[in-house]
């Protein structure tokens, strides 16, 4: 009952917030009241911008090998040449590789989260709405899935499917379904108790209509909160898989893969190889975490400071 009241409060709150303000005004208000969230938004925007305009931002071909330019230090350090962040053990420009690598991170995380969260949300919504044996079966499966550590499950799926970017996306999205299902199911269970659901049933709405027109929109807040958290997580899993040599196959400039092999082998000779790709991953995940926290504060009234 308490949860259902809170849900009603979310809806009321969203309605109240929207009243008399345009979307732009709401957005500016978000930036003003949540500076950390705004910082997160900036980091995420930089990532998306970089990924879209990679060919124009990257000064060199990320795959070009230069035998005469191995281990060139970054431009700003002693002995640096024209390469902003230096070159790696094949003489490839590190900055260009990081810029192009953003495309891999973005593609994998956005598509994986889109697939995983939509399937999870639909499953959770149906499971909560239908209830009964179907719900029980789905819940038992989710218990089982949650007992398998995330990275281990992704590794097992990659082992079965073989190494490719598509398979990384599949592995990550399968891992995301369970968490999403559970959260949306609990939201659906509380929304189901509301008067307007009973009302729509009374006027003879069909099941799918109630599900998609009345329940789905009211379960959106927890969905958005979870998605923003999952995007950062998906980037981390892609990087971890590639780091272990089981993700996006070489010579693709995946940030995770850039930290294994040469970066460790030549860590004393070329420390920049071990620093910058990791910095890129951390900055992006940091951005998604900040954005996610701020969205949670805004969308979930239980966590808002009085």
């Amino acid at each position: 009952m308490e949860a259902s009241n809170a849900r009603v409060a979310v809806v009321a709150e969203l309605g109240r917030k929207g009243r008399g303000r345009t979307r732009t005004q709401n957005f500016l208000r978000f930036l003003r009241t949540k500076p950390l969230g705004a910082a997160g938004l900036v980091l995420v925007s930089i990532l998306i911008f970089t990924a879209i305009f990679a060919p124009w931002i990257a000064p060199y071909d990320p795959y070009e090998l230069r035998v005469d330019k191995l281990f060139v230090p970054p431009a700003f350090s002693q002995g640096g040449q024209e390469f902003l962040l230096g070159t790696d053990n094949y003489g490839r420009d590190l900055f260009s590789r990081i810029v192009w690598g953003s495309r891999i991170s973005i593609t994998v995380s956005f598509i994986a989260v889109a697939i995983g969260s939509v399937i999870g949300a639909l499953l959770g919504l149906t499971s909560g709405f239908v209830g009964g044996r179907f719900d029980l079966l789905v819940q038992r499966f989710i218990d089982a899935k949650q007992a398998i550590p995330g990275l281990i499950l992704a590794l097992a799926i990659m082992a079965a499917l073989g190494q490719s970017m598509t398979n990384v996306i599949i592995a990550i999205s399968i891992g995301l379904i369970a968490g999403q299902t559970r959260i949306i199911r609990s939201a659906a269970l509380s929304v189901k108790e509301n008067m307007y659901i009973e009302a729509s049933r009374a006027i003879g709405c069909t099941g799918p209509r109630i599900l998609f027109r009345h329940m789905l929109p009211n379960c959106l807040a927890p969905y958005i909160i979870l998605v923003s958290a999952e995007l950062g997580g998906a980037i981390l899993i892609e990087a971890s898989l590639s780091f272990l040599g089981l993700g996006t196959p070489p010579p693709n400039p995946s940030w995770g893969a850039m930290l294994s092999g040469g970066a460790q082998q030549f860590v004393q000779r070329a420390p920049w190889m071990a620093i910058f790709p990791g910095l890129a991953i951390s900055a992006v995940v940091f951005g998604f975490n900040l954005l996610g926290d701020a969205l949670r504060d805004v969308l979930d009234p239980r966590l808002r400071k009085g």
Binding site: A239, S240, F243, G256, G278, S282, A283
Partner: peptide
Amino acid sequence: LAMPNFWIGV
């Protein structure tokens, strides 16, 4: 929370 643990290891 943002730093991947393999990077911390490296």
